[in-house]
C-alpha cells in the first residue's frame, strides 16, 4: 500500500515517518514509535484507554489517523512526568488509589489533564461527566474522582477537601 510522509512530535521529540494512510494514530504511537503506555480497549471509540493529547486537546487516538497528526504535537502518559517528578495527576492516582489493573489509567490521566485545563476547580459532578468517555472496570470511579480532585487542588493551590487529606496523611 502506498505510504505518506508525516512529521509528528511525540512527547517533545520530532519523528519523520512514512506511513500507510489507514494507519491509526494509536498504532503509530504504540507500534511505530514503541511508546506502549497508551492502550487499546475497544474498537468503537467507547473506552478511552487510548486517550492522548493532540496539540493539547484530549482525543481518542484510535479514532484519529496517523496522517491527521501530521505536523502536530502528541503527548502521551510517558510525557507527563518531568525532571521535577510526577505530574500532580500521576501523584493523585497513586495517593488516592485511583487505579487497580492500571489499563485505563493512562487514558484517564490524559483526559483529566485537559479537563483540569478547561476547569481548574471542577465539582465532583463535573469530574464525573468530564471522564464519562473513559471506562474503568476495576475501581468503581470513586477514587479516580478523588485522584482528579487531588490534582486540581495541587494545581490551583486551593485547600484539599478534608476527605482527601485524611488519605494522604494515612501511612505511606
Amino acid at each position: 500500500m502506498a505510504t505518506k510522509p508525516i512529521k509528528v512530535t511525540l512527547n517533545g521529540t520530532e519523528h519523520s515517518l512514512e506511513v500507510e494512510p489507514r494507519l491509526l494514530l494509536v498504532h503509530l504511537i504504540r507500534e511505530n514509535l514503541s511508546m506502549t503506555g497508551t492502550h487499546i480497549g475497544c474498537d468503537t471509540s467507547n473506552c478511552g484507554a487510548c486517550t492522548i493529547l493532540l496539540n493539547g486537546k484530549s482525543v481518542k487516538s484510535c479514532t484519529v489517523l496517523a496522517v491527521q497528526a501530521n505536523g502536530k504535537e502528541v503527548t502521551t502518559i510517558e510525557g507527563m512526568a518531568t525532571a521535577e517528578g510526577l505530574h500532580p495527576l500521576q501523584e493523585g492516582f497513586r495517593e488516592m488509589h485511583g487505579l487497580q489493573c492500571g489499563f485505563c489509567t493512562p487514558g484517564m490521566i490524559m483526559r483529566a489533564t485537559e479537563l483540569l485545563k478547561q476547569n481548574t476547580n471542577p465539582t465532583e459532578d463535573e469530574i464525573r461527566w468530564g471522564i464519562s468517555g473513559n471506562l474503568c472496570r476495576c475501581t468503581g470511579y470513586n477514587n479516580i474522582v478523588k485522584a482528579i480532585q487531588y490534582a486540581a487542588s495541587k494545581l490551583n493551590g486551593t485547600e484539599m477537601p478534608a476527605e482527601l487529606k485524611e488519605e494522604v496523611s494515612a501511612e505511606e
Binding site: G37, T76, I77, E78, M80, R94, H97, G102, E171, E172
Partner: peptide, 18 residues
C-alpha cells in the same frame, strides 16, 4: 497498614507491561 501500592509506579507512568 494502608500503604500505597508498590505496583503503581509503573502503571501511572505508562510503564506497565501488558
Amino acid at each position: 497498614h494502608p500503604i500505597k501500592r508498590k505496583e503503581d509506579a509503573r502503571f501511572i507512568q505508562g510503564k506497565g507491561k501488558y
